[in-house]
Design a protein around this nucleic acid. Structure first.
Lengths: 224, 224, 224, 224
DNA sequence: GATGAATGAGGCTTCATTCAT
DNA sequence: TATGAATGAAGCCTCATTCAT
């Protein structure tokens, strides 16, 4: 389920919901929300390790002790924040308008959507990548999101193989992982590490390579 | 290329080494070396943020205060350790024996070499990725290594375009970045995040996709 | 006798009760009672120092803030609880059925009653002993109860001296204190500190020694 | 063993030695000692629960952090302090000069020694009694010391029974516990709770009752 | 050079108490 | 009267760094 309480069938991040009970009063819910949004801003600015509880409460303009009314630790709040992040990410990535029904068009659309969603959340995606290296919870959240994304690609590849649009000798699972890695890492290097790429050229190249890799015919666009 | 804008093209990360002066005595060099190798082990186990100076000195079996004889801070020692890492990494990645002279064979060799080198250093590569998100020094080191690797691919693609082995409409710089990302991220997800992949299938799929993406003919291997 | 210097000789500890005004409403009295009985359970489990206001309100199933409707502090509630304890204790200790009219029989009856009453309240007696060391209020309550008990023994000894049942050279006040200490401390070591004694042997030995100390003839019982 | 490293055969408190390693340097041992003696003074003044780490370091005139160089917690230091206390106590209690060889004289000597030793350590004995109620470590230390003392009395009673100085129907174990309780609790009420007794009268009454309880002939002293 | 003790700023967490609803 | 959220002072503990030996 995403944070709207709607289960889209993938349950990305769903298992990582906060253990703390929902506050009973309106005021409590508001304060809890203030802390979460403040935490997101602070994590984006400082990363996980350098964020202090006091930074979050200052940003949320509540007393220090109020933090502990809602969360047991920085870690628990972080799980909440990145759980929301991955929900948002998936929602955004899928919201790119449909631009065609050919396989190549669908691939382009998915790549563009991924890069868009990544850009909206780049700082926090960076922090999540960072945390996932050593922290099992963060890793589980990150991998859940990855699995959801890779599964869609894997299913699409398998479907295209049935339609003889993609050669049968390609392993859909490995291919989906590899091509997903390509797009994901490109986004990271561009939007988190700050390498200077152009969006249109990025989408064009990623899509062209993605299609070529799967043996899908596609006419390259000529960019100005 | 590195923070000083100097890159000799070979000694990747080399400029980041040895900010502290080499010790004069034999004993001093030995102690310094103990600290560096201890630090590598501790960073691998705990990551950057959770490593304490005391962890390193304990692991090195020297007194706490001895650390400051050789290093100004944990950060300086970390730069030293990851500087060595990227040197080692490049050396190892290039040491895979040549298995053919066709473009596809060279690509396969490079991919296999990259995965092998990654595996030898996976824990520390993970820590470097982690650090690169927020720490400018770590990021510079990481990007230096990436640039060296991507530059080789870019040059290779440009050369193959001159030979008409790769279509001209592909942008060598973007393609090298995208395909390098694919291999790099696949290695990370496999060897750092722990997704269970098989090496031979991984090399085969990455190589097949890499070649297909660039329009290079390659007969797929059938794996058992 | 008590902090106010008033002791009516019967209502031991009674003057320490009800520093806060009795609630006016039915509901208020009920809530106040819930807090008191919850507090007793929590004090028994955790001791005075480690009991939190929140522990008591949780145990009483009322809101945290409700505590302050009825009590000014943990300390005030504690006084209330132990004030009740000593009243109960004295009542219980005196409720042991009369088993004879000889001095030895009366002593045995008193000792048995003391141990019985102690057992019913051992946890809280322990907490009261604990608190009495540093807290003047708890000490006053504890000493009030002790004085009442010792005074009875002192009067009894003086009466027996008039009857020539006890030698005249014994100081009734010191003897009552010493023999009261014997029974009291034995009960504490047994029922609070957990030394494994048998009740019948305990009563028999305490009574035999008590009588022997005062020069009272008594035929020892042979226990199985 | 006591803190001089001499095992007197009873090993009172010996099992409770600090887990922290002895400091290596002279200076370290000195600082550790400063903390222990400071802690003893603070515990005596404030009791266990109200003592702050900062109170101890201030009293010892060292920095706050220095505490943690030598102890893991207030509790560990407390164990050290009371471990020393019981060693001292036993040593002092036995140091009362011998005043006669009759059973009554030996009992009087033991009682006087106990009261003297108690007086030298009364504040801390009170704190130990307090802690023993809820804290298993403190309880173990307290009971160890008690066992040592009671065992001596038990052995003495059994010996006197062999000499027909004490009637055979008395259970030496229960009697030693009961009479030990009498002296111990009298000391507590007098020296910790502050009841105003006179030493000579206390020794006289305790000894007279102790002897009478065991059926030992003794000529009462007439006090002025 | 090496040692390990000493320091104290910094961050974490608890919880008694207040207060608006 | 009851609620539960908000507060912030107070205590705990860590650990990078300094320093005398």
């Amino acid at each position: 389920m995403n944070r709207l309480g709607v289960n889209d069938g993938h349950d990305v991040g769903g298992a990582h919901r906060a253990a703390s009970p929902e506050p009973v009063t309106q005021r409590g819910r508001r304060t809890r929300g203030l802390l979460i949004s403040a935490a997101r801003r602070v994590f984006e600015e400082k990363g996980y390790a350098d964020t202090r509880i006091g930074d979050i409460t200052t940003e949320a303009a509540v007393a220090h002790g109020t933090f502990y009314t809602y969360f047991e630790s920085k870690h628990e709040l972080f799980r909440e924040v990145v759980g929301m992040l991955v929900s948002d990410f998936v929602t955004e990535a899928r919201s790119v308008p449909l631009c065609g029904h050919s396989p190549a068009a669908r691939i382009e659309r998915a790549n563009r959507g991924y890069l868009w969603a990544y850009r909206s959340n780049a700082r926090l995606m960076g922090v999540l990548e960072q945390a996932a290296v050593m922290d099992p919870d963060a890793r589980a959240i990150r991998l859940d999101a990855r699995h959801a994304w890779v599964k869609r690609a894997e299913d699409a590849i398998a479907r295209m193989q049935l339609n003889h649009e993609v050669p049968a000798h390609i392993d859909p699972y490995y291919a989906a992982n590899a091509l997903g890695s390509m797009v994901d890492r490109f986004a990271f290097v561009w939007l988190v590490l700050g390498e200077p790429f152009e969006e249109e050229q990025a989408v064009e190249t990623l899509t062209q390579l993605y299609c070529g890799a799967l043996g899908i015919e596609r006419t390259p666009k000529v960019l100005p």
